[in-house]
């Protein structure tokens, strides 16, 4: 118990340090102490004596962006971990259930087609799209019998349908300029992060994480399938509905804020399992911390590697993440022998 508390504290410390360090990296030269004094100043402390421009870089650009990266990384990793256990499929992640594709379709409908007549923001459209595709997936899987493999298949069907819709809208209606903007968003980008996004996503993350942690024992019980879970006293239909809704809501909020960032939800849960084992009481916090630290650093690389250009963070997650993942798998394979 004490060792897991220590590990948790170490993980949290790593996250805080990562956020603080990541903010200092970039074209404008800013140190950790500057970051600290800006944050303290805004939280009602003493005036910090930095120029308004430097203050703005920290408080309005880098801090919300880094925090959103942490929240997105944590949220996607938790969603992936929960979906993989619930659906007993190591490939399940927020994308497989079609939630991300639906969000993309919603966003593209707003940007390209002008759906909502300006009353609907890109985020609002993405959120509506995510909810639509999730509802379509649930309806389809219910019609098909509601077993876990049907849920996965329905998710794949929804994903294909909404990806096709997105491409259709872009190809038929968008000009070159808009296409470029849309594409950037589709690949996932934290460039437009503001404090609003941070607050909304954090609130949803805390809520969803609390629901999932409250169901940690239930998720463990799904290891031998739905029937065994049921004989262990789990109301499987209700548990699956509650957990799928919580993760879908979280995914919708994250995709609405930062676009479809791939890889994190699929792979970070596996890395977390290799570190702390399969028990969800530890796995979920570990996946959240790991995902947060991972995405903070990936985004830092994405925005600095070819300055002043920016690589979409979704592209960078895979470019950096895949070799790292292969390394983790390779090492655990050897240690198991």
């Amino acid at each position: 118990m004490t060792t897991s508390l220590l590990r948790g504290a170490a993980g949290l410390g790593t996250l805080l340090l990562s956020v603080a360090l990541a903010i200092t990296i970039g074209p404008a030269d800013i140190g950790v102490t500057d970051v600290w004094s800006v944050v303290a100043g805004h939280l009602g402390g003493d005036a910090h004596g930095l120029t308004p421009i430097r203050d703005g870089i920290v408080w309005n650009l880098r801090l919300p962006r880094t925090l959103l990266a942490a929240v997105c990384g944590a949220g996607l990793a938790v969603c992936g971990a929960v979906m993989q256990s619930l659906l007993r499929n190591p490939l399940a992640d927020p994308f497989v259930l079609g939630v991300s594709s639906g969000a993309s379709t919603g966003a593209v409908a707003v940007v390209v087609l002008g759906v909502g007549g300006g009353a609907l923001s890109v985020s609002g459209g993405a959120f509506a799209g995510a909810v639509c595709s999730f509802a379509a997936m649930l309806l389809l899987s219910h019609t098909l019998g509601g077993t876990t493999d049907r849920v996965v298949l329905s998710g794949v069907a929804a994903m294909q349908l909404f990806s096709a819709l997105t491409s259709f809208i872009v190809v038929t209606s968008a000009d070159a300029e808009t296409t470029r903007g849309v594409l950037f968003w589709l690949l996932g980008s934290l460039g437009g992060a503001g404090w609003n996004d941070v607050w909304i996503c954090s609130a949803v993350l805390v809520l969803a994480l609390a629901v999932c942690l409250g169901h940690a024992g239930t998720l463990d019980a799904f290891a031998f399938g739905q029937d065994t879970a049921s004989t262990l006293g789990v109301d499987t239909t209700r548990a699956r509905l509650v957990l799928l809704c919580a993760t879908a809501l979280l995914t919708a909020a994250l995709v609405a804020a930062a676009g479809a960032i791939g890889f994190v939800g699929l792979v970070l849960p596996h890395a977390a399992r290799a570190l702390v084992g399969p028990g969800h009481r530890r796995l979920l916090p570990a996946a959240a911390l790991g995902g947060a630290v991972f995405l903070v650093w990936i985004d830092t690389v994405a925005r600095t590697v070819i300055e002043p250009q920016e690589v979409p963070v979704g592209v960078m997650t895979s470019l950096v993440g895949v070799p790292a993942f292969v390394l983790v798998l390779y090492r655990t394979r050897r240690s198991r022998r």
């Binding site: 256990s85 007993r88 190591p90 024992g217 239930t218 463990d220 019980a221 290891a223 031998f224 399938g225 065994t228 262990l232 006293g233 789990v234 399992r273 084992g277 399969p278 028990g279």
Partner: peptide, 20 residues
Amino acid sequence: QADTLVELTVADVVRLGRTP
């Protein structure tokens, strides 16, 4: 024939019995 993809130890499996 129960089976799982999860890397559980024997103790983990037995602990599942405490779920209810």
